[in-house]
Design a protein around this nucleic acid. Structure first.
Lengths: 247, 247
DNA sequence: AGCCCCAGTTGATCTGCGTCAAGGCATGGC
DNA sequence: GCCATGCCTTGACGCAGATCAACTGGGGCT
């Protein structure tokens, strides 16, 4: 499967993620300036994009595919601390090193900006800084929501939480009804799920089987998931049953 | 104990946290403008500052004392998702509701800005937005470091991690030698520690006793802690033994 | 003083998840 | 075809931490 299946010319105006990325509100002249400092890079599934501690020469956006941020302890225990989806921003203007490993979970296409020029542009262009602040605040909310999952939820609730997050993201791309059935492919191996959830891969496997046995999800093969009732899944996750959709 | 023991007149130029807060790099005229939209509020230990879901009329900085951000599930399980120390920022420009409960853990003094005018000032003043971005990125790093603690560390490592974070913060205020002995008072009850660490209070108590028995810490009463060897404590926490201080 | 109340400690027991180990089922190379 | 490899599933067992419960000690009431 090609990650570039859509006809994308490499021009910002065609960019499939532009309306959600850092450059969402840029004017034409600003886009032109971004064009001049950007380049694309592709990474194969499993490849490391940035090593923890490396100095980063670029910042950028994920255009296609999924990348993950992970931290690893000396003895090998690892925890995934973020999932980067198309339009998500990578890098930290104003600091040189990365604090985490960034790894391509699927094949990934990134739109990179050379760091120095990007920072200069940001200094001149308040609404890029503003957009980045909003995106960072969203990430902070997501990280904190995940702290609740890691600290207080049971294995079953953790799995249900992960599935409902992935399902919700897919929904925002191809809108099914929010409370109807939902179908998607898991972009993560059992091991990656375990690293995200603070579990072992065996426990992940067992709980997936349990949710399937109890009719909360249907599995076709190992990765293709059908959720017949999102409300049910969100109850299993321990969230409000409406998932905040009624507000 | 008064939280306002330092002679603080209520004027920005005397503010004990100014060099670390949002307004760190403000010029005199900007400070004047902040003066005109700010007011102080005090909260007693245990009081709720903001309820999850409330609309917030203000943003602001913690001036003295410690506040915490917590999330609670319907069945009462709670997880602390952030610890707010003096100079930390509260609130989310550009969004109305809080996603968490904000609670005063000790007596707290806050410097509040009315939200609307603050947002307008921010729009006109790029370096306030820039400072806020930096602070938010720092918080994001802290949240992600905490995800590793919650997801992968043992109870003993969790306690050691918390103690070393608190010790390090105190060190940054009153500089002892970084690898010598360190003395501080715990600002948290056992229950609050448990909520931060994703443990029960009984487990916290047992592990505190174990660290004391093993000579990693000394306890005088329930709250007064002496760490004879910070390196040892950081090993117990599962971090690099140098804690990044050798870099 | 006498009392209560709250925070913390400690013990006994239970259990959810980790650990270790044995397969299953695709895919790809020879 | 056959075997190797990667990803996943399932079972048996043990342990770290949760749960339930009793107790301690200090600080602030009347």
């Amino acid at each position: 499967m090609s990650v570039q299946s859509q006809a994308f010319t490499g021009n910002c105006s065609d960019c499939p993620v532009r309306h959600r990325a850092v450059c969402a509100h840029c004017e034409i002249d600003e886009l032109d300036e971004l064009e001049s400092i950007k380049y694309y890079r592709t990474f194969e599934a499993g490849q490391t994009i940035i090593w923890s501690g490396d100095k980063m020469a670029f910042v950028g956006s994920v255009i296609a595919g999924i990348a993950s941020l992970t931290q690893t302890m000396e003895d090998g225990r690892t925890q995934m601390v973020g999932l980067l989806l198309p339009s998500d921003f990578v890098g930290r203007p104003g600091r040189d090193g990365s604090a985490y490993d960034v790894t391509a979970t699927t094949d990934v296409v990134m739109c990179c900006f050379r760091k120095k020029p990007f920072e200069q542009l940001m200094a001149r262009t308040p609404h890029i800084a503003h957009r980045l602040l909003q995106m960072t605040l969203d990430e902070l909310d997501a990280a904190r929501e995940w702290m609740l999952v890691l600290g207080r939820k049971t294995a079953r609730e953790k799995i249900a939480s992960l599935l409902s997050i992935i399902a919700r993201r897919d929904a925002s791309l191809s809108p099914n009804g929010p409370s109807g059935a939902m179908v998607f492919d898991l972009p993560l191996t059992r091991e990656a799920m375990a690293d995200y959830l603070g579990l072992t891969l065996e426990t992940v496997s067992r709980q997936m089987s349990a949710l399937k046995r109890d009719g909360v999800i249907l599995l076709e093969g190992k990765r293709h998931v059908t959720v017949p009732d999102m409300g049910r899944l969100m109850e299993e996750a321990g969230d409000d049953s409406d998932g905040g959709l009624m507000a």
